[in-house]
């Protein structure tokens, strides 16, 4: 009988080649461009780390990075708990459920620039429903002119757009929990919070990790919605990393600095995702999901 061999790994080779062609080599090319000043294919100068030095000392880069971190933190802090609360509020069965699920999925189906457009009109103080209502309520609201208003609108738009994703993922996780766990919790007279923390949370933790990672990644590269809604303004108040990067790479066609910027951008995302992933998956805090006596 043939002993175990590792020949099956050869089956992975096409994927490796495809990923190398479509992801690894382009990333290497970006690194390669980031150390050169390129005018055209023939005319290029090796400049070492100059673009990195310039980018890291560019106050607009640092500001955009800080804004990006603030934005991502705020939307996670709002969307994750809100998504969980909504998912727990959904009925587990019944005629209403399919309708609610479809309604929840609607914002996810709208193209991002359309979301930006909807909110741009919705929030306008003169003709928009939201803007006019808020102003009628006595607040002086103008998202194109006031920084706080722009931020509030942007965050409200992201929450409107993406909380459903968290809700649907969490709901999928919740429906997989056996009814016996809830019955046991009921017999033990567990409070709602205890049911969530000891019965539900350990079993939806991995789904939540995916939800948070998806939202984190997506919010870190947010471009379209703020581009349509505020155009990065007022001033640069809502200019995030991707918008600043695009203005460099496409607007000014500075390939070298834009490549250095991209590498730094990539590093920040890599670090945040790794930190988050290891802290959630590696932590042994919280009850063991497979410990049925853990109540």
């Amino acid at each position: 009988m043939q002993a175990n061999t590792n020949k099956a790994w050869l089956g992975v080779l096409p994927v490796v080649l495809l990923v190398a062609f479509s992801a690894v080599i382009p990333l290497m090319t970006v690194v390669n461009y980031s150390v050169q000043d390129i005018f055209d294919v023939q005319t290029r100068v090796f400049v070492g780390f100059d673009w990195y030095r310039e980018t890291l000392r560019d106050p607009r880069f640092v500001d955009a990075l800080l804004r990006q971190i603030l934005f991502s933190s705020l939307i996670l802090v709002i969307e994750i708990p809100l998504g969980i609360v909504l998912a727990r509020g959904l009925p587990r069965e019944g005629r209403l459920l399919p309708l609610l699920l479809v309604l929840l999925a609607v914002p996810l189906l709208i193209p991002w620039n359309v979301v930006g457009m909807i909110w741009q009109i919705f929030a306008r103080p003169d003709i928009g429903l939201l803007g006019a209502a808020v102003n009628a309520a006595g607040f002086d609201y103008n998202f194109t002119g006031v920084v706080t208003d722009a931020w509030v609108t942007l965050i409200a738009m992201d929450v409107w757009h993406w909380t459903s994703l968290v809700t649907l993922l969490t709901f999928a996780g919740l429906t997989a929990i056996p009814g016996a766990c809830y019955q046991a919790a009921m017999l033990d007279d567990a409070s709602r919070w205890q049911v969530f923390w000891y019965v539900e949370f350990p079993r939806i933790r991995s789904v939540l990790v995916i939800a948070v990672l998806l939202r984190l990644m997506d919010s870190l590269m947010i471009y379209t919605e703020p581009f349509v809604l505020t155009g990065g303004g007022p001033g640069n108040a809502t200019t995030f990393l991707s918008q600043y990067l695009t203005s460099m790479a496409v607007g000014q066609f500075d390939v070298g600095p834009a490549a250095a910027f991209s590498v730094l951008y990539f590093l920040v995302i890599l670090l945040l995702c790794w930190l988050f992933y290891t802290s959630v998956m590696g932590s042994s805090k919280g009850p063991d999901p497979y410990d049925e006596d853990g109540l």
Binding site: V31, N32, Y33, V35, Q36, I38, G48
Partner: peptide
């Protein structure tokens, strides 16, 4: 040459 590789980046990736 058409991908504008340089010796330092080649060494780095190697």
């Amino acid at each position: 040459a058409w991908m504008a590789w340089t010796l330092p980046t080649a060494l780095f990736f190697a």
